[in-house]
Design a protein around this nucleic acid. Structure first.
Lengths: 131, 131
DNA sequence: GTCGCTGTTCTATAACACTAGAACAGTAAC
DNA sequence: GTTACTGTTCTAGTGTTATAGAACAGCGAC
């Protein structure tokens, strides 16, 4: 029984510079933020999520360990891992920080590339409409 | 004599997920694009650029090797490395592709984060005004 | 020729991300 | 008890990025 819902299992980008464990971590935070997983409900097991993402279980272990260190989840050996109380609020904050960081990086590159305001705004609007 | 001008020597971001050699490579492309280095003029030597960027010479070797493979530069042993003819045109194209790629990544994360149009646009405008 | 610069090519080392596989331990259902 | 899941911990190996250091070869000025 491993129906892992809600966009957690879309294929990862293994060619990305962003480490796989970070992509997974972000997805879980985003899922908690939109309350796809409510406080005190179970997240997918280490092995089932690893299977669904076609990733080594150890990678999921690392993700869950990190999230537990941030106190966003807690785990019960033999039972599963669960969303912490108030995790949703903190994930909603994290969510903005994560997107902001990516946008900052893009803007920094644009600045270095010497794009002027008009070029940048045109590019932005074009890409926005595509997605 | 190693006055390397024109933003090639600003400190790198060693904490970035983007590899150092890629950051350097992009900077050189941007510099060529804005004709800070004209076709058939010399780029900084391997060792001087390495010194200025506080990076191992082998890292610069890799950057120059990659750029030469793209035929954006050519090297003369014992003399230096030089900008290829028409490299500036191709770098101006590359420049847009590089920025577009970063913006796409940011938009993809924003989509996953479930940001709505209003939140995204507000964030964008806020960050734009900061820089 | 020497000297001092150029690019080029090695090997070795280390850190990090990720895989592979095994083993151990706790829980729940039967 | 057994079975089948849970999380946890460990060792080993791979590929990539980057550093460190040495050596070789070409060019130009003296």
């Amino acid at each position: 029984m491993d129906a892992v819902p809600l966009g957690l299992t879309e294929p990862l980008d293994f060619d990305s510079d962003v480490p796989v464990y970070e992509q997974i971590s972000n997805r879980i935070k985003f899922a908690i933020a939109r309350q796809a997983y409510r406080p005190d409900t179970r997240l997918p097991s280490v092995r089932s999520l690893a299977r669904n993402l076609v990733v080594n279980p150890n990678t999921i272990v690392r993700v869950y360990r990190d999230l537990e260190q941030e106190e966003l989840i807690y785990s019960k050996r033999g039972v599963g891992v669960f969303v912490s109380p108030q995790a949703d609020q903190r994930c909603r904050l994290d969510r903005l920080v994560i997107v902001e960081e990516k946008l900052r990086e893009a803007l920094e590159v644009a600045r270095r590339a010497n794009l002027n305001d008009k070029e940048l705004e045109e590019l932005w609007q074009r890409l926005r409409l595509q997605s």
